[in-house]
Amino acid sequence: MESRTFYNEVLTEHNVRPAHKRALEGECFSLEGVNPSCGDDITLSLRVEDGVIVDGAFEGDGCAISQASADIMLDLVIGRTKDEALRLSDLFRRMIQGAASEAEIEELEEAGALRDVSHMPARVKCAVLGWHTLDEILRNPDKAVGQR
């Protein structure tokens, strides 16, 4: 029960008061991520300097899980290198697939609260939308350049 309470508190806090839901001003990489099965739509923006994600934000609409997951993700990756962010994204996906160890889930900090989404197949795409968009920006920055 404690896990479910933690999940609800974290999800609610990041959905109701997202720290990173805003426009990111200045030069940045931006890319739209869409989940056509439920209508979630976000535009993720990252400012990367010398291989480090120095700022990030998202805009758009969607369910509580997609919005909270994107906000939690940005809390976790801002200040990290691109390689660290990609590794965390891989851990998140493995957690959602039920393949991450407890130690790996602990590395995900608050994102670990979304582990139970793995038992809700219809919500998996919601939870990974921001993470997938992050991967696309970091692995294929040419796709994102100039998009706002």
Rank of each mutant, 00 (worst) to 15 (best):
R87D: 09
S89R: 04
K21Y: 09
R139I: 10
G33N: 07
N8I: 10
Q147W: 11
V10I: 13
R87S: 04
V48N: 04
V77N: 00
E27M: 06
T5G: 12
E104P: 00
D71P: 06
E136M: 11
E109T: 10
A99C: 10
G112Q: 02
I72E: 10
R94F: 01
G51K: 04
N140F: 13
V48Y: 00
K82Y: 12
V77L: 03
R80D: 08
C63R: 03
L108G: 01
H132D: 15
S45L: 06
H20P: 07
T43N: 11
I96A: 01
P18D: 07
L24M: 08
V16A: 07
L24D: 03
F29H: 07
A85Q: 02
R123C: 02
E9L: 06
T133A: 01
E2C: 14
L44K: 09
G51C: 05
D90C: 08
A99R: 12
H20N: 09
R148F: 11
I78R: 03
E136Y: 05
L31Q: 01
D135E: 13
T81Y: 06
Q67F: 11
L114R: 01
L74H: 11
I42F: 08
R93F: 14
P18I: 07
H119E: 14
D41E: 15
D71G: 02
H132N: 15
T5F: 14
E84I: 01
L138A: 02
I42K: 11
L24K: 10
T12M: 15
W131P: 03
R93T: 13
R93L: 12
V54I: 09
D41R: 14
L44S: 09
A19K: 15
S3V: 15
T133Q: 01
M1R: 14
D116T: 14
N35H: 12
K21T: 10
E136G: 04
G79A: 07
A70F: 08
E9W: 05
C28R: 13
F6R: 14
M73D: 00
M95I: 08
E109L: 11
G56E: 01
G51Q: 04
L91S: 05
A85G: 04
L44E: 06
C28F: 07
T12E: 14
W131Y: 07
S37W: 11
H14F: 02
S45N: 10
R123F: 00
E9F: 03
S45V: 11
S45R: 13
D116K: 12
V52I: 10
R94A: 03
V16T: 06
H14D: 00
S3P: 12
P36E: 03
D142C: 02
G33W: 02
F29S: 02
T43I: 08
G62I: 04
R115S: 13
V124E: 03
D50T: 06
G62E: 03
A100F: 02
F6L: 15
N35I: 05
